[in-house]
Design a protein around this nucleic acid. Structure first.
Lengths: 239, 239
DNA sequence: ATAACCAAACGAACACCGTTCGTCAAGAAC
DNA sequence: GTTCTTGACGAACGGTGTTCGTTTGGTTAT
């Protein structure tokens, strides 16, 4: 950004003690850029600019933007708190860690979308997965249900965070939607009309509620549906 | 693309009977482009090229790319089948329509990501929402639980479709992940080690299973948590 | 002290992208 | 026949990820 090396070779004096680049510094700076500008405002060029260098310099430490995304996600997952009061039940602990994960996803705009676009298997992610699987097993949920259930839970939390992120990013569209919903025809769409307030309510209560619903389902569900495993779904049209 | 109008004004004769543009044609062409190249391969320029015109021409009918995305999504939702055998229970019908929705999301690569990026309230979407809410009410699930539950169900189906889309798009990363998972340390991550096969299994059985889990949870859950509505979550750290 | 070497850093370029602007031509209205 | 409107469009602006070839500063070998 602030480079002025038009003469011969004075440049190295104008930038005397620049801290050397590193993977960690790049990832941390990228998280800062994300925090300020969201996922739209995150680009190799912007991150490089924040480090007072050019985009090409980053490619020494990071293969491409996609890999940087992955590194950023895992670094963020490292901020999830796994601590819990010892007297809590497994269910309370599970809910607690999921909410902490949700907090991390919502701390920086665009982090949830980043989580959705990332196939997540860094060190911090593994630690989190291990912890959650342990809790489900502690609750007596067997192997397969635990694996699938963990996926169900995290998928939902990530999705709800991403959805909120989008709505914050484009609030103009959202107000338009709310107007449409408010004036919706009671004849053509009676059920939507009846629930039109509930649909946009409970911004914060909703996620804990959904977590409870899914854990309840996980406990009551009679599956693991071994019968459907061999011969495809046996359900309706899988194309 | 195939324009040759270097001389004076012969161009109009070289392109005599071009079908006029329209919103519908643009949306339909965009869906074709999406089907072929995924969301990455969808751009105003590509859609315009497929219509043998320039990108600027599209802006007469579509405000911007984001609005085009919205129109594309609603058009796709129109393909969801709401038909069901009359003797089915509300629960079977609900599962059926959700699977049909999943099919639509997976029919074109990138459609699920598009669904996640869209705030969905076109005509076809409203029809689908109305239908699903009706089924939930038919099942005796009261107003608020139905509204939130519908959101939970669709959010999950969309998320699972998007996740699969990503994995297809970047299979190189996925194989790497699978290798990591296969050789994972049994000491450091015992639970992951134990469930490492279940975690990547059941590609197709998983979604019907998760739908059952969520409906079970929806039925058994004692909520709607009116107690948490007035004073924020009363849970842990909402930032 | 000097020469050789190497890897990090970087400037420039390529091929894209969304969007805007000014212009042009064809049909409608008069 | 003339004016007016409007859809179509070429060109351009400022952005993007990524690559290539070169520079450069510090380290090692002579």
């Amino acid at each position: 950004m602030e480079k002025k090396n038009s003469p011969s070779t004075v440049s190295r004096r104008a930038r005397p003690a620049k801290a050397p680049l590193s993977r960690e510094i790049i990832v941390q700076t990228a998280l800062d850029v994300l925090a300020q500008g969201g996922l739209e405002g995150l680009s190799m060029r912007k991150v490089a600019a924040a480090l007072d260098t050019g985009a090409a310099s980053l490619y020494v430490y990071v293969a491409n933007l996609s890999e940087l995304h992955g590194q950023m996600f895992d670094a963020a997952v490292g901020e999830v708190s796994l601590a819990a009061p010892a007297n809590e039940t497994w269910r309370e602990k599970l809910k607690r860690v999921l909410i902490s994960y949700l907090d991390v996803l919502m701390a920086r705009p665009g982090m949830a979308q980043l989580a959705q676009a990332t196939i997540p298997f860094g060190q911090n992610t593994l630690r989190l997965v291990e912890y959650m699987l342990g809790l489900l097993r502690e609750g007596g949920i067997e192997q397969e249900r635990a694996a699938w259930g963990f996926d169900l839970l995290t998928l939902y939390v990530t999705a709800i965070a991403a959805e909120r992120g989008f709505r914050e990013a484009r609030s103009e569209v959202l107000t338009h939607v709310k107007a449409t919903l408010r004036n919706i025809s009671a004849d053509e769409f009676p059920h939507i009309h009846a629930t039109r307030h509930a649909m946009t309510s409970g911004e914060f209560a909703r996620t804990p509620w959904a977590i409870e619903v899914m854990i309840d389902g996980l406990i009551h569900c009679t599956f693991p549906p071994l019968d459907t495993l061999p011969g495809q779904p046996a359900e309706k049209g899988r194309s």
